[in-house]
Design a protein around this nucleic acid. Sequence first.
DNA 1: AAATATGTGTCAATTTATTCACATGTATAG
DNA 2: CTATACATGTGAATAAATTGACACATATTT
Lengths: 212, 212
Amino acid sequence: MNRESQVSVTVIRRLPKYHRYLTELIEKGISRISSQELSVLTGFTASQIRQDLNNFGGFGQQGYGYNVEDLQKELGKILGLDTRYNAVVVGAGNLGQAIANYKGFEDAGFKVLSLFDRNPRVIGLKIRDIEIRDMEHIEEFIKEHNVEIGIITTPKDSAQQIADIYIRSGIKGIWNFAPTDLQVPDDIVVENVRLNESLFILSYFLKTKFDK
Amino acid sequence: MNRESQVSVTVIRRLPKYHRYLTELIEKGISRISSQELSVLTGFTASQIRQDLNNFGGFGQQGYGYNVEDLQKELGKILGLDTRYNAVVVGAGNLGQAIANYKGFEDAGFKVLSLFDRNPRVIGLKIRDIEIRDMEHIEEFIKEHNVEIGIITTPKDSAQQIADIYIRSGIKGIWNFAPTDLQVPDDIVVENVRLNESLFILSYFLKTKFDK
DNA sequence: AAATATGTGTCAATTTATTCACATGTATAG
DNA sequence: CTATACATGTGAATAAATTGACACATATTT
């Protein structure tokens, strides 16, 4: 087990936010920042920020703080943003197309090579320059193009079936938008985007705030 | 402050998953379940499930377990799924259109009345039966139609500006897809969907799993 | 109808996460 | 070149979350 894998998920989930603010600071031309200042930006405590960063190394300097550019670069490496991956999307509906068009993707090192669907009406269409192909050819496509990431934007009932195809084809990670928990072997990474759950949480806080 | 608002956010964020599995159990015609069985389904420990549910009341019965339908209904009430809200979307791009088409929405009690955009090329178009309108009319629309939820699916640079319009128009909650932290007064509820961050996390776990 | 099995609700124990506090090193001002 | 302010990294203290354990009530079996 490598060093990073014993850092708690709680800490990991805060890293993207640090990375985002550091990127904004670079854009503003700010080259130096203290944990105190980062605390104001992110809303985490300065102490927590120092603890978090120290899981990965001592990036700061006493009396100075952190060099923005260096720290951003380091966080990028920790998050694996320097590695490029090929991806495909199954489900060329609205959400699938939105994802294929999504710019933020490239920032994370992912490139969508193709969308797949079963609906003959969309097969052959192009989103930007990304073609929608027939599901029939997905397995060979994945193998031929060295695709490592599979994205699922279908309704929940077909999600597991698609995950199985992905696994069979040798994919390493799945980005799942379907509201279901996928069953996968230990060596496959799954990251879920739970739109429902997010909405439910919004609903909960609306209720508790206004329903007395 | 009411009872529910002192339940920790950590607990709240688990409720949608309970609700989802209970809904599936209802569909399968299962009427009774123990915390132990729910534990197998959800991956949370039985003890944790009992603790979580007990924050809101004793829904179970010793020697029997929980009545699936009752518990699902109770969780629905806790999450506020019995309340209906009108919503609008700003940003009629791919993501905005995907959201407007999204069925899971109605399950949470939200109804999208209209999309808004600045791009003259999309104004006037209809997504299902939802019209895309000019941003110019958004404030009066919100006030006239009793809209309580504002959704943001624009790039990050305009997100705060749109939030300000929402706030000025009297909206209560914002569902934000832009990768930025919105500044809002205390009485506005914001729920963020961080697609970037989710991707970064996927990237991180891919890296730590395969990069030794 | 009694005996046994089941399973909740809850309090206590443990583990994990966050905050505090400060010794130590570096930058900056005079 | 010295003095002062700054701000990290870290170990200890506190707080929060999770798990364990069991008394007690209900269901089920015989």
